[in-house]
Design a binder for these strands. Sequence first.
DNA 1: CAAATCACTTGTCATTTGGCAAAAAGAAAT
DNA 2: ATTTCTTTTTGCCAAATGACAAGTGATTTG
Lengths: 190, 190
Amino acid sequence: MDALINYLLQFGHLNTQQIALIKSKGVEKEIKKDAYYQKAGKIPREVIFLTEGIFRICYYNHKGDEITKYFIDENNFVADLDSYNQGIPSTEYAQAVTDSKYIALSKEAMLDLSLTIVGWDEIVNKIIVKGFAEKVTKISTMMSEDATERYLRFFERFPTLANRIPLSYLASYLGITQSSLSRIRKNISD
Amino acid sequence: MDALINYLLQFGHLNTQQIALIKSKGVEKEIKKDAYYQKAGKIPREVIFLTEGIFRICYYNHKGDEITKYFIDENNFVADLDSYNQGIPSTEYAQAVTDSKYIALSKEAMLDLSLTIVGWDEIVNKIIVKGFAEKVTKISTMMSEDATERYLRFFERFPTLANRIPLSYLASYLGITQSSLSRIRKNISD
DNA sequence: CAAATCACTTGTCATTTGGCAAAAAGAAAT
DNA sequence: ATTTCTTTTTGCCAAATGACAAGTGATTTG
């Protein structure tokens, strides 16, 4: 829970009382590797903060391929904001790719915090914007790189993960086939 | 100016007085094709709403290539939010790729609106989040497509633009070389 | 243990894309 | 109109990637 508080404090001030309130609203939960936290079609009713482990966000494209949109690691929020805010079914899946722990804040809790803590909305918005901006920059950067560069960049960020998740997850994220990824890994290790 | 108001009204309610205030704060400006609205190194001091024309956001990667990160068309905000909020130099360029018109809202105006109009911040944040979410989804989708599909998708969205902007702008956005783009266009027209 | 299943690797070949340079086409300047 | 400059197209070949199938290895299941 402290990880969440420390993270929040990067984006604004919170006094002891406010921190206590947040802690009282957060619910610590766990999810096993491979389990889906969120499935397309379901309406998200909470926002979660990853404290341990890694998630991936994925969806099916028009050809029926399963595409990994991006990975999310520790100390980041996970939420399909559009669906969450509008109360409509999500179009994406969120899957734990390792055993993970997270803190859940229900929609009611978020509303309560928003009404009680002056500056809460501002903190949340800063976090959301930062998260999106990072995603745009990262994916955009990938567009101008070749597959090997993209793989190396991923490897740099998730060194322990690259060889422990299914090829399909990573290949679809990198925008290449599983075979190509297999060959790229082979070339690098030579 | 009405385009801006109509756009804002999609995200929340505004009464006549509030609308008048917003209009009084907005400054209508123009920019010529090819001119840079924003350059890397400058600190952005305003947010703008594009009413006519198309901008592109670009930067230089570590190899020195100029990369088009994305295009922005009418009825969208343009802002390097990170730099704008923190008051630090931008790392990106924003260039008009066609003659354009926009409404500028200075940082002071934005603050004023924020303090005066209840719900202003909420409207602004909804817009920001929506814009980012769209960008992430769009670029992410491109990752799973081949160059021809990416070009066709761009062509669909900006039919009049595809043949009127320099190859380099579009090619770097699509993540391919100018030669490849030239060949793709040729193949399609056959 | 054997069989079945799944994930990954490899082989083969076609296609796409890149790198480079020259040619062609367009645009701007004189 | 000619020259100059820039942009786009094309040719050529190498490298990267995709498609498909077969092979390998690991894991699970009975």
